[in-house]
Amino acid sequence: MAGADDLVERAKNGDGRALDALLERHLPMVYRFVTMRLGRDHADVDDVVQETLIAAASSIMSLRAERDGAAPAWFLTIARHKLADHTRRAPIRHLDAEAVVAESDVQQIVSDRDRDRRLREAMARLTSDQEEVLVLRFVLGFDLDQTSAITGRTVGAVKALQHRGLASLERIIKGAGLESG
């Protein structure tokens, strides 16, 4: 399998297959990131992911992939911009839960959705550094070395931010009565 930096170079040289492979490789990460921000069943998830990848394809020449982790960081930056665009232009809309599930499940779905919303709000109260590390580590599933490469921080700094972020999140959750259950 070609490395990400090799794909980037080939994509920049007009290799459509390499560009496709690069986009497809980062799609799962972008998708998780967008669902984390919008909600798992938000109706606009696919549109925002598409817009992110299309923007990435059209601005591939601006991607500098000399260092490890540059490509994921670049894709996530584009996704953040697209999410911001989406927030500005679109009213909040979710799939109509009652329309797609049995009535007996509706209460559980609403409860889960509310718990997720409050967890997102708790995340938003972290420092941006802590939030970034927690998202990379526990939402997107990057390991310590990858997170270090993406953020440009040492592994030790990532661990410290992770520890402080989790502690802060635990305090916020307990303070707001968000314990799991």
Partner: peptide, 22 residues
């Protein structure tokens, strides 16, 4: 426990999602 809840905050792209988006 918090890490687990963070992981569940997001969803994975299914095969159909991936294909239609690409």
């Amino acid at each position: 426990e918090i890490a687990d809840r963070l992981w569940k905050l997001a969803a994975d792209a299914g095969q159909a999602d991936t294909e239609s988006i690409m």
